[in-house]
Design a protein around this nucleic acid. Structure first.
Lengths: 246, 246
DNA sequence: CAGTGGACTTGATAAATGTCAAGCGTGAGA
DNA sequence: TCTCACGCTTGACATTTATCAAGTCCACTG
């Protein structure tokens, strides 16, 4: 691993609170690697040998059953994947492939478990990360069960606008067919629904999203912290070491 | 807390590996309580003050949005809930209510976080539990996105038969309307689909399920370890302290 | 013992969503 | 520059799923 990589990694919230000794031990077997676009690097059912940490690029987590396939999540830097499988030493429930050329850090599962045992700061960072992943899937499942496709689209696109800094217009971060799969519908239906939403304050032209009437659109999206986020900032006062108070 | 409760709890996998000191500290603020049937004890959006551990009875986790509601999970003893919210000190994403009179242990979130910091065995048990919860939701989400209602019913009922010990006939563990909600459909549709499945080796009469033709039913259910479980037994060799291999 | 409410079922109908086939547009590579 | 592949769109149609309205059955209760 290159020293510049090492320095960069040390700053990640996962590793920031580790003792130097544990950190060195942990990173002994670690390496950082580039993957080309559209490469499936993990197949569901395979053992989870490494925790993956996405440093640059974009990765899709997807699931298949028979000949069907669905996008479960899109990971952006800095994000981790297959953490749960790593912890349990269980087979991955999802597959992973790059959506673009990506730089990924691979952390051997055994090292992770060792460091979890040895270092409290790391252990805390890991559960916190895992709890975040859990809450993200719960949100996704809620969306699938409580909203219809029109509402899923509206809420997704509004939420993205929020994340981009409460803008009225932005670029779609992913291809439409991927978005359709993520939102649990066919590409055809997404296309049609987008057209239908033009009546409701939304315009999508190619990859450009324009929210022409936020109030109207919100009546459909009904964004909800408990379904769309954001999660309160991770690892806040209550969860970390007490310092301010006494 | 009664001494008999205390002894019982100590044996739970969550607490089994704790040091006596940490255990005593942890259980200082703990209490065990009975709840009547149909009592909503947690409302989504509320802070998670306690980790809940179900000792007896049955609890439903459900989510709502506007006037819609859906069952996310049914907890059976021994099971935990709102672990992730507890860890993150974040609002609960789901509500919880008893399906029958239940005995529940309440463990203050602050105690949990303290014990997590102080005791490795406990920390490990907690991540392991959380990882299990994560994988369960991922499975649920996969089922919702990859299978249609007919397939979800078939796979659910086959899986229950497996869990009951590979039997051909058993009692439904929950009411049908609850099952419908859990499987993401209306009660009417469940009823009709069950009728339709009589052609495919399944008979449901009241709460009695009879798998008349497992092979035929399996062609629809297509049970899959990665979607229907079981998960490899939690906390196995690889994840715990090395002992056999010197 | 009758009454009441709730779970479950059934049928008719509507709405949502998927499938198939075709055509458009654009970008990568020959 | 041409061509091809692929993402996207559109239309027609099929299938799935939800909604609404009865009606049955059963358990609980006054």
């Amino acid at each position: 691993m290159r020293p510049t990589d090492l320095a960069e990694i040390r700053r990640l919230s996962l590793f920031r609170d580790m003792s130097q000794q544990c950190y060195e031990q942990l990173t002994r077997g670690v390496y950082v690697q580039h993957f080309p676009e559209s490469l499936t690097m993990i197949r569901q059912g395979e053992p989870a040998d490494f925790l993956h940490i996405l440093l640059d690029g974009q990765v899709e987590l997807f699931a298949s059953w028979g000949d069907r396939e669905t996008t479960m999540s899109v990971i952006k830097p800095i994000g981790t994947f297959i953490l749960a499988a790593t912890i349990r030493d269980a087979p991955c429930l999802m597959s992973a492939r790059t959506l673009e050329r990506s730089r990924i850090m691979l952390l051997p599962s055994a090292n992770l478990r060792q460091a979890f045992r040895d270092d409290r700061g790391f252990a805390h960072a890991i559960v916190d990360e895992l709890a975040g992943c859990y809450r993200a899937v719960v949100r996704h499942a809620k969306g699938m069960k409580l909203r219809n496709s029109r509402e899923r689209i509206a809420s997704y696109l509004m939420r993205q606008a929020q994340l981009a800094g409460d803008v009225r217009s932005y670029q779609l971060p992913v291809e439409k067919r991927l978005l359709a799969s993520y939102l649990g519908m066919t590409a055809e239906n997404l296309s049609r629904a987008l057209r239908g939403l033009e009546e409701d304050g939304l315009k999508v032209d190619g990859t450009r999203v324009i929210i022409t009437d936020p109030i109207k659109l919100m009546k459909i999206a009904k964004l909800d912290m408990l379904m769309d986020g954001p999660d309160p900032s991770p690892t806040t006062e209550a969860a970390s070491l007490p310092k301010a108070t006494a």
